[in-house]
Structures are given as C-alpha cells and as structure tokens.
Amino acid sequence: MNFFNVIRWIVWKDLVTELRSRETISSMVFFALIVILIFSFSFSMDQQAAREVIAGIIWVAFAFTGIIGLGKSFSAELQNDCIEALQMVPESKGAIYLGKVAANFLFIFVVEILLFPMFVIFFNLDVVEEISLLLLIFFLATLGLSAVGTLFSALTVQIRAREVMLPILLLPMVVPVMIAAVEATKGALNGDPLPMYSQWLELLAIFDVIFTVVSFWMFEFVMDN
C-alpha cells in the first residue's frame, strides 16, 4: 500500500461505516437543530437583532456539532482495538492523518450543508447572492476545524476523560478560525463588498495550511506507541 492508497482506504472505510450505521451524521444534525432551537429562545429575534448575532449562532452551532463528529472519529476505532491496527499500517502515520482529516471534513461539511437551509428558514436570511462565497467560507473554516480537531481527537481518545478534554483542548486552539469565520459570514450575510472582509478568508487559508502541515508532522508522535 502506498501513501495515497492508505488515505483512500481510510476515507472509504469511514464513509462505508457511516453509510451503514448513519450514527455520526444523524446525531450531529439532530444536536445542531437543538442548538438552533435553544439559541432562538435565548435571544428575542427580530429581523434587526438576527442580523447582528446570526453569524455567531451559526458558528457556535457548527463548532459544537463538529466536536461531536470529531470525537466519534477516533473513539469508533477503539472497538475491537482497531486503533492498534491503524498504528501498524506499514506507511507513514501522516497518511492516516490525512485520510481521517478528509473523512471528518466531509462529515462536518455535509452536516453544515444540511443545516444551513434551517438557518435560512428559521432566521429569514437572504442568501441567494452570496451563496458561493458562504460555501467558500464554510469550506475553509471546516478544513481548519478538522485539521486541528483530527489531531486532538487522536490524542484525547487514548486518555481518560476524553469527552471532556477534546473541547477543552480544541476550542482555544481554533479561536482564530472562529473569529475569522464569524466575521466573514457576517460580512457575506450583510452583503458587504468582498474587500471589506477578504482578509478573514486569507487568515482562514493561512491557518488551514499551517495547521495541516504542523498536525501532519505531530501526528507521528501521537500515534507512535
């Protein structure tokens, strides 16, 4: 098996498991719906107030949902000691990392695509013109979230109290992603001209590149048992 085959097999394995059980995506979507519901109770939402806070609500919901998916990514490997089989793959551990990042990215991105229409309906958003830009923002931010999140998922799965430690470690690290995603989404939803918030897109892209490289390298140390 060469490097790219390992990546492909990992993605394929995760997708097949998900298609057969439908555990991760359904729980993520349902959880996010509840988060949206709670938010709509917590703020009294008229049209003006919604414009102010909706970007924040979207990203809080996406981040929490993402953490559920990321946590499941490696805890599923604990059954039947699959994680030890992964550690024995005769190829660089980075291949496993990239495969897992791709799978996690797909799950979270699909969930975001499913959820976004809910936000549009519940909060009366007007998104027809900026939909491609919003998709680009979702793409970049989700990539950043899963690049760091996959590493921490692999790291926390092998310790005690893993459900608690994943968000505690992950959320401070992805503060730049959250800030940039919220600001860019806010700009796009308000219909601001692109140069006003393009710097946030650049920040997201830089974060993605840096953290994919660093996590790829660090993953060796996490899986090395």
Partner: peptide
C-alpha cells in the same frame, strides 16, 4: 510527556 509536548508545540 509526548502528548503534552505535542500540545505545547501546537499552542
């Protein structure tokens, strides 16, 4: 030690 070092470097 190993995990802590990974976390510190990421930070």
């Amino acid at each position: 030690a190993r995990y802590a070092a990974v976390l510190a470097i990421l930070g």
